[in-house]
Nucleic acid binder design. Sequence first.
DNA 1: CAATTAAACAACTTAATGTCAATTAAATAA
DNA 2: TTATTTAATTGACATTAAGTTGTTTAATTG
Lengths: 188, 188
Amino acid sequence: MSNNEKMKVDPRIKRTKRMFKDAIISLIQENYDKSKLTVQNIADRAELNRATFYLHYQDIDDLMEQMIDEVLDELNKTMKSPSEDNQSIKKGYPAPRTRLISFLEHFYRNAGLYNVMLENKDFHKRVFGILLEIVTFWAEDRKERGRSFQVPNEIIASSTLGIILWWLQEGTPYSPSYLANQIILMSN
Amino acid sequence: MSNNEKMKVDPRIKRTKRMFKDAIISLIQENYDKSKLTVQNIADRAELNRATFYLHYQDIDDLMEQMIDEVLDELNKTMKSPSEDNQSIKKGYPAPRTRLISFLEHFYRNAGLYNVMLENKDFHKRVFGILLEIVTFWAEDRKERGRSFQVPNEIIASSTLGIILWWLQEGTPYSPSYLANQIILMSN
DNA sequence: CAATTAAACAACTTAATGTCAATTAAATAA
DNA sequence: TTATTTAATTGACATTAAGTTGTTTAATTG
């Protein structure tokens, strides 16, 4: 049985990991100074022993990576299920906008977490990859309708990511659908 | 006499600081793992004593900050002088594009450094501020010519920054002027 | 209940930080 | 050129964090 399957996992482990994750997020959000995060700090905030940390993670980076994997799994799920049983493929062209909105909504819901994690270069790259897929799909859609772009997909994806970064930074001042409109507007 | 004036600075200090800066840049560029940068590493690479580091900097963050200040001073200089004694103000409207190009050229010349430093949140914000100025100036220019925008300046500035980030990440695949064209194209 | 496994805790090793005093070497001004 | 100033070197030391280990306590599961 692959360890990908949902194995029954000891509830103590679930709880412990949840506590470490919550701890690091709250610390980063108030401290703002990731360079002076220590394992001791995290353990203190989680109200767990420092040694327990090493039972689950190699080091702080490892904790971050696991959090990244989780949230990206969730993002991928969000992106796949609701846009495919939508009208998207069947009706033809409301797809791109819907897809972008559900993407943005996921960011909106997890703004605090994303705002922290997008500073991580690796995470940044992976989000860019997902965005590039969206934009490519979108460009093909336009092509079919005879209105192809002059601007490379990478440029559109990276500018969209830039906007999202700023939006999170500023505390998500606009709604996901307004932002989606602005983004679509810019790419025309 | 203000310490703002160019004081004669001991050439030993200049050399030492230069060596620490070069050291940290080269380390980050190969390691890619800023979290495990140590003062000892930096001193080793600089071929200087670790204690000498503390003669000039509080800690690694302080070194980074000083580098940021320097490069932004330079950027500001680049932005001011050449666009103001150009045809810009006199002739009226070749300004915005010229301004953007000289901005991008500065990034192009210092690509390695910027690519490292843009991971720094503070630096990122300051660059965004400069870009916002450029974009605002640019929007006013359009207004005068009766073609105002529907998209907020912040959106344009952040998407431009997103493009620049990606461009640096990929090793500056396009020329500054090509990129400037793409950016201007997108904002229409 | 019995076996298993996680968490707590204390003790310890290693590595990095930050500071200091004494000395050497380089730059500059008289 | 010499004297003076100031930077850099060096080794040492105290402090703090990182990791690891062995043992005890407590929760989970069959």
